[in-house]
């Protein structure tokens, strides 16, 4: 498998563990995507962002479609970073935050949805 020269750098930080494994299974075979880290909690996430400088962080969406609090401070410090938030308990919730308080519409939570979000495709399939 050839590896892209400038792969998309992704930090996988979503919970629970099963959803993290699911996301890893979805993106780990992609030649243009590099998993720069995998963390289990929010404190680790903030540190890992500083250590690994990812292009994207994938997190779990909280109840009421909220991002984990730490994401807002990360976006403040790194406005160029993208955060993808995935709900594990619903059919169709995947948000892509592009900067503070600005985010894309809800799109379908699927392997294709995750990959399209990471590749910045504008024509993401809507739920």
């Amino acid at each position: 498998m050839s590896v892209a020269l400038n792969p998309i750098r992704v930090l996988v930080a979503n919970r629970p563990r099963l959803m993290r494994d699911i996301v890893l299974a979805t993106i780990s075979d992609q030649p243009d995507i590099e998993i720069v880290g995998e963390v289990n909690d929010e404190q680790e996430m903030a540190k890992a962002v500083e250590d690994t400088h990812p292009d994207f962080v994938i997190v779990a969406l909280r109840g009421g479609d909220k991002l984990p609090d730490v994401c807002y401070s990360i976006l403040e410090r790194h406005p160029q970073m993208r955060i993808i938030a995935i709900a594990s308990d619903r059919a169709s919730t995947l948000f892509c935050w592009t900067s503070l308080n600005i985010h894309s519409d809800r799109i379908e939570t699927s392997e294709e949805g995750v990959l399209r979000a990471l590749r910045g495709k504008p024509e993401m399939p809507r739920a």
Binding site: L18, M19, D21, I22, V23, A25, T26, I86, A87, S88, D89, R90, A91, S92, L94, E108, T109, S110, E111, G113, V114
Partner: peptide, 13 residues
């Protein structure tokens, strides 16, 4: 599973 991502990825695993 209602969650397509979970369904697809578990199936692949």
């Amino acid at each position: 599973s209602r969650n397509r991502l979970l369904r697809e990825s578990l199936a692949r695993i």
